[in-house]
Each structure stands twice: as C-alpha cells, then as structure tokens.
Simulated scan of single mutants.
Amino acid sequence: MVGNVKKIERPNGIVELRLNRPMKYNAINYNMMDDLKRHLTELKGSVTLNALIITGEGEKAFCSGGDVELFHKLTTKEEAYAMLSKMGGILYELMLFPVPTIALINGTTLGGGCEIATACDVRIAKQGSSIGFIQGNLGLTTGWGGASMLLEKIAYHDAMAILLSSKKYNTDEAVELGFIDKVIPFNADFHEKGYEEIEKMLVNKGNVLKAYKQVSIRKWKSSDLYSRMMLEIEQCADLWTQDEHIKAVEAFLNRR
C-alpha cells in the first residue's frame, strides 16, 4: 500500500520522495511526517544514493503546509510544540542529509511547504507556481525552523522581505529574491522534465557530491543550527494559543 510519501527510484543513484495527499494539496499530517522520517532514515545509510528529490504528487501542489483543519485541534502550547518540533526535527535531518537535496516544486507551495523547500539545497519550480511564507497571515511565525534555514540559504534582506511580508510570490519574483534557482516552463509531464534538469546539473560522481555537501553540514553543525531552529519553534508555539492565531484560522476554515 502506498503511504503518504511515495518513494520512486530514479536512474543514476537518484531517489524521489513524493508527498502524497494530492486531494489536500499535499498538506502535512502526522502520517506523512512519520513516512518522511522513515524514508530519510533508511536512505541516509545508502552507499549508492547520489541525490534526493522532494516533490509533490499531482499537478497542483508541492505542499500547502500543515493540515490546518487537523492541527487547529491543538489547543495548548505543549500540544503545538510537540507537533512543531517533530516536523522541525525532520527538516533538520533533511537540511543535514548527506547527499544533495532538490525541491522539485510542482505547484502551490505555502507556509510549511516553503519550509520543506528551504531545507533542500536546490529549488526548481514549475512556471506559475504560487510560493509564500504566509504564516504571518495566520498570526504565526514559521513553525518548523524555516526562518533559521532561510537565513542560511539566501541574502538577509531578501529573507527578511519574504518573512515579514507573508506575501505570495510568483516564480519570477521568487527567482529575483533568490529563493528559486531555476524555473521550468509549464510541462504536462513536469516531474519527468524536472528529473532531466536535475540529472544535467549534477556531476556523475557520488563521492564528489557527498564531499561538497559535507562542507555545508559542518558549517550548520558548528553554528548550532538545531538549537536555533528549536528556539524559533518555541516562539511559534507561544503564538499558537493567542487569539490572533485562533481567530485567523477560524476565519480561514470558514471561508473554505
């Protein structure tokens, strides 16, 4: 039985993990967290793996973030922190994954979906995708360590512009801000086209790819990225039970 994350073996030592809740715009729930963690743990020890792709099932969404309806049931700071820190820990593992990671953004990428994409080394998007750290519109900050990771990946002023505005951006704007590395024109078979582009950008020498990734991993470990992410997550948990967040989520759910 296919779970909430599909594993697809590609040629040349590349594996694709596909978030698999297309009817929910690939929103993250607890089962998807568990599946993602299990796959990352299993793949981390592979000697033949050269690169990892994270993408979404279907044509509409990479990931719309956390499942708002499900997580709205978390009513205390402790409950919120347990969920947020669980996913934050998974994204820290993705940040420090031993081979290059590529977010293949196949559509809507919002909130926590942007945090997942940020944890990857490279971000390739389908033309027309909507991208945004929109958590502020729900009275929250990034909840899975996304701000700490974003500040490691792009220029400070661009990262802060993205975070402080809580705006949605189109792919051209996201390229200008440094968040998206490459845009692929709309293609009926986007996942296949995306894989072809990824294959072109990677040298066919697994040891070289892993060695370069270790340079970044050493930096992030020495700067105690994990602790910074967890402090950020605690700040989000503090905001979780405040009226501003509760009312914003209720308005969002009622509008839907």
Rank of each mutant, 00 (worst) to 15 (best):
A159V: 01
F252H: 06
D158F: 10
E115C: 05
A117H: 06
A51E: 07
D34K: 12
V249F: 09
A188Q: 02
E199A: 14
L164W: 13
K126H: 06
M230V: 12
T142K: 11
L91E: 12
V203D: 08
G112R: 01
K193V: 04
I116Y: 09
E9A: 04
E192M: 11
G145V: 09
D34H: 09
P11T: 00
D172W: 04
T108A: 14
L91P: 13
K60L: 01
I116L: 14
V47G: 08
G3L: 11
N50I: 01
A174T: 07
R10S: 09
G13Y: 05
V5L: 03
R123T: 07
Y195F: 15
E93D: 10
K37I: 12
K210H: 10
N31G: 09
T75Q: 15
V99E: 09
S129T: 15
D67S: 03
L19K: 07
K247S: 15
E57N: 11
E196K: 03
Y25A: 13
S222P: 05
L52D: 03
A237V: 08
G111P: 00
I116S: 11
G113C: 02
S227T: 14
R123V: 07
K200I: 10
E176I: 04
E176N: 12
Y156R: 15
G111F: 05
S216V: 04
L84N: 03
P22F: 08
L202V: 07
E192D: 13
L96F: 02
L202W: 07
L177F: 08
L19C: 06
Q235E: 12
A117G: 05
T109G: 00
E115L: 02
D35A: 03
A103N: 06
T118Y: 07
E197P: 10
H39K: 06
Q214I: 04
V5P: 10
F133N: 03
S129I: 03
M83T: 02
E176H: 10
A125V: 02
